[in-house]
Simulated scan of single mutants.
Amino acid sequence: MEIAANTKISAIFKANPDAIEAIASINRHFEKLRNPILRKILASRVTIADAARIGGCTEEEFYKRLEPLGFTYTSKAEYAAKPAAVAHQMPLFLGQLQQESMIELDVCEDIATGNDPFLKIMDAVEQVNGSNALKLINSFEPTPLISILQKRGYTSYVEEIKPDLVHTYFWLEKIAAGAPVTPAPVIDFNVMVNDYEGRLRHLDVRHLEMPQPMIAILGELETLPPQEALHVTHRKVPQFLLPKLQERGFALALKEVGPNEVHLLIYKEN
């Protein structure tokens, strides 16, 4: 198998199970890969480049350990050592946040016991609204998660407290800088409700646990006629739903009624 920096660790293990021990022996950061549950959580989301960064080593270490197992690579020029990470000062936005504006989530125990914390993290991320931030406490730098959230508009800052203890912060920089939190003013919501009178479907997802609200909403939209709109009652503004609506050609108006009640009106854009 030919490998490169963007090759997923799970693909390597699938090609040759002996690679598990080869990578686990690189340094202590990878010893958790010997645990089949943790291996399932981590390997499917991490590339060689990601793993090298997490483990504080170079990609060359992976190529050297995997070469005897029959893995090949295109160029030894890829072995060039990466420069040491530069310590960065905490961003001003984080430094000015009050303690009550920091959402803290510790997933170290989840990782240690083999529980995948991804949905728990996504639930916490949805609470980030532009005036607060998420502080994720983990045993390693969550490189794949940083990449996913960066594409969705989240800024991150990583702080290594000590070996096996990393604090990663996520916040919405553009919104924090003054962009509006809601995609449409309240008056637009009221106007749209009147326009769709008699052509509304209603869906209340406040009782559902993550990620069921998004699944239920997208499921309803699959059968929604173009001339109708979906009126959703939610606990909060579903940040991860918004880009999915845009991808599917839907527009959105919303109205925040209270701390745990948000009304969404979803309709097909003309």
Rank of each mutant, 00 (worst) to 15 (best):
N129H: 09
L254S: 10
L119D: 07
E197D: 10
G130A: 15
L218C: 09
L134E: 10
M1C: 04
A87Q: 08
N115T: 04
V262P: 00
N138Q: 03
P213K: 09
L119F: 12
H207V: 14
M102F: 13
E78W: 11
N270K: 11
A229H: 03
S139E: 02
E126H: 01
I146E: 04
I217T: 02
F62D: 14
L252C: 08
E209N: 12
P238G: 11
D50S: 12
R28L: 15
K268T: 00
Q212K: 14
E126Q: 12
T113H: 07
P117M: 15
A80H: 12
G55S: 06
K14S: 05
L105H: 04
R152E: 03
A11S: 05
G130F: 09
F189Y: 11
Q99F: 04
A84C: 11
A24V: 14
Q150N: 06
M1S: 12
N138R: 15
I3Y: 02
K135H: 05
I41H: 10
L200G: 03
P213Q: 03
Q96N: 13
G258V: 13
K174H: 10
R199G: 00
H234P: 00
F170G: 14
E197C: 11
D164E: 09
D123I: 01
F118R: 13
M1T: 01
K82R: 03
S44Q: 14
I12E: 06
A84L: 07
R201C: 01
E269T: 01
F71M: 09
K120G: 05
G70Q: 09
E21C: 06
L254V: 04
G153I: 05
I20Y: 10
D106P: 09
G258Y: 06
W171M: 15
E256R: 06
I20C: 12
G130I: 14
A251Q: 15
E2K: 14
H88C: 06
D123V: 01
L149Y: 01
L264M: 00
L94T: 08
H167I: 02
K76I: 12
M102G: 06
L230F: 10
G258D: 04
Y267S: 00
L165H: 12
K120A: 02
A87D: 08
F13G: 04
D110V: 08
V125M: 04
D116P: 11
T223W: 00
P83I: 07
T113Q: 07
A24F: 08
I187Q: 15
T47L: 06
K236I: 02
V181H: 12
N138Y: 07
G114N: 06
V257A: 14
H88E: 15
V166F: 07
I9Y: 13
N260A: 09
L134A: 00
P142M: 01
S139A: 13
I217P: 13
K40Q: 13
